[in-house]
Design a protein around this nucleic acid. Structure first.
Lengths: 244, 244
DNA sequence: GCGAACCTCACCAATATGGGGGAGGTCGGA
DNA sequence: TCCGACCTCCCCCATATTGGTGAGGTTCGC
């Protein structure tokens, strides 16, 4: 019930406050391990999926499992990642579709590495298409799992929010030099092109010539540091510069 | 302090639970009005900014103000919308840059419509580039505002999460027929093109011919229902089908 | 065993894009 | 008052893209 969110395990409350003091990912990892111990979970993991570069995560999964997960390229077939990227609600692993061959291998390997037979994942979406998740697992009976969820499930939504907030701070994701400012016409140009409208029709719609439209496209493309229009539009969408 | 999140105003707690019973946007609006009354704010508003179509919002702003805001196209220059779309942390209106001429008119008009001289906005990012925010305002002194923030600020983060969750349910945003499944090669093709790499180099990188690459591009474009490659890539980025 | 999905490759012609170059007018902030 | 940013428009030429068409092989789930 929603009320449980607001009266969570005191240990979680204290740990969330402690989270704010972390100054690096390793410090965050230490605190996440403490929360895991205090809520008596098997594992607790924060994972920022689409950094576009180095892996950003903090949690109690072993290095052996992380290495194995990467080596097998499990992320490409992980039902958890897929569900989290397309969802907003927290969900249980048991409710996912594990029928694929590679998904079954992932499940079997996860069991072999003792990740826990019960899992709950909270999707986290941030600005500029940032996508992460907070996952908690528990090795135990269905009864234990149900009690565990009732006790901590909702507070973990808040934990996820603050962990992500802290990660964004620590990584300097928000005070970025990537910030680009497009003029209103440049924004319009990209927005309509992103809708798949031809240049001729966009020019028509904006009441300008195709030559003029091209000036806006080229200018925006340079501001975004993109090699071509396609790359510029992909970047603008990801940065949230064009809202559609 | 973080601890206050976990022990919020009892009225807010009850209202959050009540939120889950809403079955439509108007019912949600009724409940948001109740929360506004219980926390003694001037206004409380949920606004889904990029629906790509009809306005989705629920809150206590007057219809006169909403009509005026749209007529003046204030969204294009609203520092609140800009800061929320690029951020993750809750922020106060006073901390924004209102120096622009149009931003100043927005601020003046907002005051004339009695929106409240103090405002706090909580950005909300959902799946598939969904972007919304929960805003609370209070007409009052700095002292009143500081006390108000301390009392309710953190609980509103949770309120925002659940209001958005309920809106997504009510609108059927998550059980969408927009769900598209791209094959691994189609995904790779779009991903590299989105990075601004030329078709020749993408083909090179994937170890296939340009003809083959083109088959993947065309196939993905049709799956996405896009008129051209640019539109297809914009849609794939927005839907979170290509993670970069 | 069969069928759908995926992966692979090729061609022609018309249209679109991009790299360069040129130009002038308006508005708002310092 | 001046300057930078924005808005507007044009040209040439080389390259890339797109709308069509054709084809064959492999894998996996029912």
């Amino acid at each position: 019930m929603l009320l449980e969110i607001l009266s969570p395990d005191d240990a979680v409350a204290a740990a969330i406050e402690d989270m704010d003091g972390a100054r690096s990912i390793p410090e965050l990892e230490t605190r996440i391990a403490q929360v895991r111990d205090e809520i008596r979970a098997t594992h607790l993991l924060y994972h920022w999926v689409n950094t576009g570069g180095e892996l950003v995560g903090a949690g109690t999964y072993t290095h052996a499992w992380r290495a194995h997960y990467m080596a097998e390229n499990f992320q490409a077939v992980d039902p958890v990642i897929r569900a989290a990227s397309q969802g907003f609600h927290a969900f249980e692993w048991a409710h996912l579709d594990w029928s694929g061959k590679r998904a079954q291998k992932l499940a079997a390997d996860a069991q072999r590495f003792s990740l826990g037979n019960n899992g709950l994942t909270i999707p986290i979406h941030g600005p500029r298409a940032q996508f992460a998740h907070l996952t908690v697992t528990l090795e135990g009976s269905q009864e234990d799992w149900d009690l565990f969820k009732d006790r901590t499930g909702r507070a973990l939504i808040l934990l996820g929010h603050f962990v992500n907030r802290k990660v964004l701070e620590v990584c300097g994701y928000l005070d970025t030099s990537e910030e680009v400012s497009l003029s209103p016409r440049e924004t319009d140009a990209l927005k309509y092109l992103a809708m798949g409208i031809s240049r001729a029709r966009v020019a028509d719609q904006l009441g300008i010539s195709e030559h003029t439209l091209r000036v806006y496209i080229e200018s925006a493309r340079h501001k975004l540091g993109a090699a071509n229009t396609t790359g510029a539009i992909a970047k603008a969408v990801r940065l949230g510069l064009i809202l559609t």
